[in-house]
Design a protein around this nucleic acid. Structure first.
Lengths: 203, 203
DNA sequence: GTGTGTGAAACTTTTCACAGCA
DNA sequence: TGCTGTGAAAAGTTTCACACAC
């Protein structure tokens, strides 16, 4: 298949990767049925999703685990990130083992709080936010992670965009507005809780 | 409209609520066009989403901000939550101001680490995980939030399910498996980064 | 036999376009 | 006139079902 990969498929690829990691080391091959059960989706969906990457399965056998992992990793890629906000959330992110596992490098951490500047979080020194623009350019940061309180988030987003960051992951509970050239994803705890709460009531 | 509310609409309702909060106090009415611009979606989408709640708009005018807020809040609801894992992420969650704002109450925090047990995080005492099942029942906890390392997450999920929790919000980087009666949502940092990374390469 | 790859069908979600009401 | 509410069309996504390669 030569169509562009659908959004929903892109969002499932990391889940498949996670499932492959949970496999015992002895597994060389995996079927769409097994992977689907692990990921909690339909086997036809797994086959269709993986077919967008090219035809890497072997009929009658399944998918070569190592090869599949490589292909998914190659498709998704990785890059350098900067974390803005060195509170509990920023620290949790900096300590997150999945960064290394997926090849993302924390190229800097920034905060406005004088008391935090100079301290180390998981080996990364917290820098003043005024250093953010230069650091983004010098260190080739491709993704900015906003872990500030809501009121500071939009200004941080503007600075990141100005410095050339094209992707922002926003943990602050506000809706950010940047130009069309900046790709923004939001992760919001209350949204998630409210969705769960809705379905508690409606079933 | 009397159809069930689509999943995608339920997921957008919290965003609309957030947008209403960002409005200046003087705003009594808002049009679908303005709300759509704030939320980053199409105006027709806003109207269709809100029409599932009942017909609360006034033609030629827009939506009464206070009334709309009440209707969305009533639809989404709120409840008591327990946080499992008192590391940086658990602490970030406990300190998250959006809990209060949306009516969610942190009814308990749990950890296995002896050193953390008895300490307070944002006024909530950390308790041993062995107390989790009784606490869930006694305090009528409806949603469990898993903020543990990956290797501990499935066992915590099993215990929560056993104690009768029907909804789980999972921050650990593993795919959880519970019975069909348990509703699980996952929030995974690497997934989000990988999706952004994909679109950095593909455009 | 076994399990992938993929057209076609079924279903979901978004967007359009306009009737209808303040 | 202005903006909602909503059928209908368009676009996107999931699932089925089976030909086909190992």
């Amino acid at each position: 298949m030569k169509d562009p990969i659908p959004r929903v498929t892109v969002e499932r690829l990391p889940i498949y990767l996670q499932c492959l990691d949970e496999l015992p080391n002895s597994s060389d091959w995996i079927s769409s049925e097994r992977l689907a059960a692990m990921a909690g989706v339909n086997p036809a969906q797994v086959r269709k999703d993986l077919s967008y990457l090219g035809s890497y399965g072997v009929r009658g056998v399944g998918y070569d685990v190592d090869h599949l992992r490589q292909q998914i990793e190659r498709e998704l890629g990785s890059c350098r990130v900067a974390i803005v906000g060195a509170g509990n959330l920023g620290a949790a992110l900096a300590n997150y083992p999945g960064f290394d596992e997926r090849g993302f490098e924390v190229a800097g951490m920034f905060d406005v709080d004088e008391a935090k500047i100079g301290t180390k979080v998981n080996g990364v020194v917290v820098e003043p936010i005024s250093d953010l623009p230069d650091a983004v350019i010098d260190r080739k940061v491709a993704i900015g992670i906003i872990a500030t309180p809501g009121h500071a988030a939009q200004e941080v987003a503007d600075r990141l965009a100005e410095a050339g960051v094209q992707s922002i992951l926003n943990f602050a509970p506000v809706v950010l507005h940047c130009g069309d050239d900046v790709d923004i994803r939001r992760v919001d705890l209350s949204t998630e809780l409210q969705v769960l709460s809705f379905y508690l009531r409606h079933k």
